[in-house]
């Protein structure tokens, strides 16, 4: 089975994923990096309101990524397995590991589709590659795997970790096949995550990273051994959620603080 990883602006995460999968004997056959440069995005959306909105989104991304979890759970997890992530670029890491790396600045360009078609991949793991159109989806034989930060089919869309806390639903990661809808493709596996004392949203996000890695590895084994079950979902089985407004997010943060301060009162899981 031939599989690749596709990513955009997620260097560290992708690097960690490569080394983790290699550790578990699933070295990827190629990596595709979408370099959606800031300039490229601005050029595509030449409209000041859109620019302001993109700047805001960039800032909020930066703020949320700078709101570091109290512990880098993923790094600690990799360390505990004896996996060392060298402090080098993704390009260098791929070179060192002998993995072909392809870069493109437009995910849906004819060039990217052609590249994927030529690669004849059975599977593609999405490591933050973006939203895929059918021209990309159709180039991979089995499909594109995505790790979604919530329970499917109930919680689709954006910020589902926060929405799950808001609604006191089960927290965890679902790996599914990407189809033309938003998080509506076949469900492959779900791994719950638990809230521990003192956990913040950033901590939980970080913990979902561990669940992502483990799930990807398990699903790859299942694919190789032909023991995977795909559970179909229909669009009406769940709701699509969208980016949470900062005011609701504050409510969620407060709720999580209360819940994780006294672990015994956690109603989730």
């Amino acid at each position: 089975m031939k599989y690749g990883i596709i990513t955009a602006d997620q260097e560290l995460y992708t690097k960690r994923l490569i080394y983790f999968l290699k550790f578990n004997f699933h070295k990827p056959d190629c990596v595709i990096q979408v370099t959606n440069s800031f300039f490229h995005r601005i050029k595509r959306n030449l409209n000041l309101r859109a620019v302001v909105s993109i700047l805001k989104a960039q800032t909020s991304e930066r703020v949320s990524s700078s709101a570091k979890p109290s512990t880098d759970h993923l790094a600690r997890y990799l360390e505990s397995l004896g996996i060392t992530i060298p402090d080098i670029s993704l390009v260098q890491a791929c070179k060192n590991e002998g993995i072909p790396l392809f870069t493109t600045n437009d995910l849906h360009s004819g060039k990217t589709c052609e590249l994927l078609r030529r690669s004849e991949l059975d599977l593609l793991i999405n490591a933050g590659g973006g939203i895929f159109k059918s021209c990309i989806i159709d180039t991979v034989r089995i499909g594109i795997l995505n790790a979604h930060m919530g329970l499917l089919p109930d919680m689709r869309g954006m910020n589902v970790l926060e929405w799950s806390i808001f609604y006191e639903r089960k927290l965890g990661v679902t790996v599914h096949i990407i189809d033309r809808g938003i998080d509506t493709g076949d469900i492959l596996s779900f791994k719950p995550i638990s809230i521990e004392k003192g956990d913040s949203i950033s901590d939980l996000r970080d913990k979902t990273g561990i669940a992502n890695f483990e799930l990807f590895s398990e699903v790859l084994i299942d694919f190789k051994t032909d023991s995977l079950t795909r559970r179909k979902q229909s669009p009406e089985m769940g709701l699509q959620y969208f980016v949470m407004h900062p005011r609701l997010r504050s409510c969620v943060e407060r709720k999580l603080r209360d819940m994780s301060a006294d672990k015994s009162s956690i109603p989730i899981n």
Partner: peptide, 13 residues
């Protein structure tokens, strides 16, 4: 409204 946006993380248009 929610789907009218230029970037998944951006505010809607």
């Amino acid at each position: 409204y929610e789907k009218r946006k230029r970037h998944p993380n951006a505010s809607p248009e």
